[in-house]
Design a protein around this nucleic acid. Structure first.
Lengths: 340, 340
DNA sequence: CCTGCTTTTGCAAACGCTTGCAAAATAGTT
DNA sequence: AACTATTTTGCAAGCGTTTGCAAAAGCAGG
C-alpha cells in the first residue's frame, strides 16, 4: 500500500485528472461498452493514481442498485445459522455483494419493518432464514416485487423462491439405519411441530417404521422444541417409560445433545445402553462424545444456493421463482450400537 | 399490518400530506429540536398514514451518516466469533445501527480494500475482530480518522480503541486451579504464538507454576494453533512423553476438544486418567462430554463493549481512545480430577 | 472535401434527503 | 399597538453517482 486512499476523492477529481468528463469516468467504472480504449486507459490510470473508490451510497441513490443483500436470521446463537451464513457469505463475495445482517431474536415484531427498510434501497434483495415466517412478511415483499429467497423454509403457496432439503427422506433413512441395526423400539423427539420440517421429519420416521412393519407407538414420540433443554426433557420421559426405547431419534442435533445428557443423568451409557441420533450435522456433532450419528443437512450449500438464487433474481427480475430441494446424507459416527 | 408500506413514498409526499414543507418533515424525522409540537404531530400522522420509510441511502449521502457499522471477521466458522458477533449485534440494535458483515477468510489481502470501501460512506465505523492485524490496515483507518475499535486484539502502540480480556490472569487462575487439585505435571498447548493473547496465556501459565514453586518443563509445552487438529497433535505429543502430564491446559476450547480426542485415542479416560482444561468458554464447552472446565472470556460482552465504544466514538469524534480490559472467570465443570 | 453514419463524449437532470440561511410567525415588552 | 427577540418554517443548494439525450468526433464512401 503506497498510495493513500483518500475517501474524499470523487469522480470529478478523477475526471479532471484524466482530462475527460465525469460521465465518461462513470461509464468506464460501470463497464459501459462504448468507451474508446485509450480513454478507458487514461481513466483507469487516474483512478489508480488518485486511489479513487466509489461512494456506494451515491451509486445506489442514483443507480437504484446497492450491491448489498440483507440476511434476516433469528439469531447467531446456534451452529445451524452460522453454517448457512457461511455459505451465503461465500457465494455473495464471489459476486461482490455485501451482506447486511439482521437478527430478529429480540423484537419479534420487527421483521416487517426490517423488510421495508431494506427494500427502501438499503438492499437489493433479502435472504430469509426465519423459522416462523409470518405471511404479512412475505406479502409485503411480494407486493413490492422485491427479490427474496426463503432458506430452510417454504412458502406453502409456492409463491416464493426457496431452498430446503429432504427432511422426510433424511428422517426415513436415519430410521431405517436404526432398524437395520436391530432397533425396533425407537424413541422420537420432535422438533417444533409448528414448523414444516419438524412435521416432515416425524413423517419420515413413521414411514420408515411402517415400511419395516414396526408398529408406531405414540408414547415413544415426545415433543421437543429443537433446543437442548427440550431434548433433555423429552428424553427423560422416554427413559422413564416402563419399557424404554433402545434408540432415540432426536429431531435435531441440539436436542440430541440434550438427550445425551439425559441418558447420562440416568446413569446409562451411549451407545451401549442406548443409541442416539440427531439431525442437521452442525459442527458440534463431531465434537461431542461419543460423536453423533446424524443426518447432514448441507447447510452451507443451502446458503450458497439461496444466495445464488437471489442474485439471479436480482440480476434478471423476469426469472421465474424456483424451489430447490437439496438432499440430505446419513452420517454414521459413534453414537449407535448394533443390536445384532 | 393494514397499510401497505409503499417504498416509493418520499419525504415530499409526506410533506404534501401534512401540509408542511419537506424540510420540516426532515427535521421532525431526524428529531430536530425546534419544531412546534402540533406540526410534529401532523407530520407523524402523515408518516403513519402513508407508511413512509426513509431511504437510508439518500439520508447518508446527504447527511454523511449511514447508521451502519461494519464488522470485519475472519470467518463465521467457530463459536468464538459467533458469540462476539452476538454481543455486537445486540448493542448495535439497541442504538439502531445496522450491521454490515465482512469476512476475510478467503482473501487475505482484501482487508485494506474493505476498509476503504467502508470508510467511503458505506459505514460510519468499523469493528475489527481480526486476529492478525496488519499495520497498513489500521494505518489507513487512522489516516482517514475513521472510527474503529479492535476486539480481542490490541494496537501495540495504543493508538486504537480496543477491547480484550485478561488472558494472562485467566491462564494464571486456571493453572493455579489445577495445581490446587494436586497437579504438578501440567502440559500446555499453546495458541498461535504470533498472537499476543496466546503469548499472554502461556505467560500466565508459567507465572502460576513459578509462584507455586513448580519447575517449568519445556517439553510439557507443545505448540498448537487454536484449532482442533492442532490440539490433537500437540496433545498426542504430550501423551507420548515418557512421563506424561496428569493434566493438559489447552490454550482455547477448540484445541481442548482436539486434546480430548487424542486422549481417547490413547485409550485414556477424562478426567480419571488425565484432566483437560480449555480457554474461552465457547457454547460447545458445555456440550462436550465430559463438560469442559475452562476460563470464560466474556465474548458477547466484549462484542457489546466494543460496539459501544465505537458508537461513542462515532457520535463524539473528540472522545479519546480507550482500551478496555474485561476480566475472565474460571468455569469449573467436569473435565478435571483432584489428585488429593 | 463533403455527406451521412456510427462511435464517443459531455451536459444536465435526477436519485431522496440534510442543512445553512433567511423569511415568517409568534411571543414578550414597553 | 409597535417593536424586538425568539421560535418555526421554507427555499435552495448540495451530497456523488447514473443515464437519457444531444453534440462532437471519426470514419467510409462518393
Amino acid at each position: 500500500m503506497n498510495k493513500k486512499l483518500d475517501p474524499s476523492v470523487t469522480i470529478l477529481d478523477v475526471a479532471r485528472e484524466a482530462g475527460v468528463s465525469y460521465s465518461t469516468v462513470s461509464r468506464v467504472l460501470s463497464g459501459y461498452e462504448f468507451v474508446k480504449e485509450t480513454t478507458r486507459q487514461k481513466v483507469m490510470e487516474a483512478v489508480e493514481r488518485l486511489g479513487y473508490v466509489a461512494n456506494q451510497q451515491a451509486r445506489s441513490l442514483a443507480g437504484g442498485k446497492s450491491r448489498v443483500i440483507g440476511l434476516l436470521v433469528p439469531g447467531l446463537d446456534n451452529g445451524y445459522i452460522g453454517e448457512i451464513a457461511r455459505g451465503i457469505d461465500e457465494e455473495l463475495s464471489r459476486f461482490e455483494y455485501d451482506l447486511l445482517l439482521y437478527t430478529t431474536h429480540r423484537d419479534k415484531g420487527k421483521e416487517a419493518s426490517y423488510s421495508v427498510r431494506l427494500a427502501k434501497g438499503l438492499a437489493d434483495g433479502l435472504l430469509l432464514v426465519v423459522p416462523f415466517l409470518t405471511n404479512t412478511y412475505t406479502e409485503t415483499l411480494k407486493a413490492q416485487n422485491f427479490p427474496y429467497v426463503l432458506i430452510d423454509q417454504i412458502d406453502p403457496a409456492a409463491q416464493s423462491s426457496s431452498v430446503e432439503c429432504t427432511n422426510w427422506q433424511g428422517a426415513y433413512d436415519l430410521t431405517r439405519y436404526l432398524i437395520e441395526l436391530g432397533h425396533t423400539r425407537i424413541g422420537f423427539i420432535t422438533g417444533l411441530m409448528g414448523l414444516r420440517n419438524a412435521v416432515d421429519r416425524l413423517e419420515g420416521y413413521r414411514a420408515a417404521l411402517l415400511d419395516s412393519g414396526i408398529p408406531y407407538i405414540p408414547e415413544l414420540v415426545q415433543e421437543g422444541d429443537y433446543w437442548k433443554d427440550g431434548g433433555y426433557q423429552a428424553a427423560s420421559k422416554l427413559l422413564n417409560l416402563a419399557k424404554r426405547p433402545t434408540a432415540i431419534f432426536a429431531s435435531n442435533d441440539l436436542s440430541a445433545f440434550g438427550a445425551m445428557e439425559a441418558v447420562r443423568t440416568h446413569g446409562l451409557h451411549i451407545p451401549n445402553d442406548i443409541s442416539i441420533v440427531g439431525f442437521d450435522d452442525i459442527p458440534q456433532a463431531s465434537l461431542v462424545y461419543p460423536q453423533l450419528t446424524t443426518v447432514r443437512q448441507p447447510l452451507d450449500q443451502m446458503g450458497r444456493v439461496g444466495a445464488r438464487l437471489l442474485i439471479d433474481q436480482i440480476e434478471d427480475p423476469e426469472r421465474p421463482l424456483r424451489q430447490v430441494v437439496l438432499s440430505t446424507q446419513l452420517i454414521v459416527r459413534d453414537s449407535c450400537r448394533s443390536l445384532k
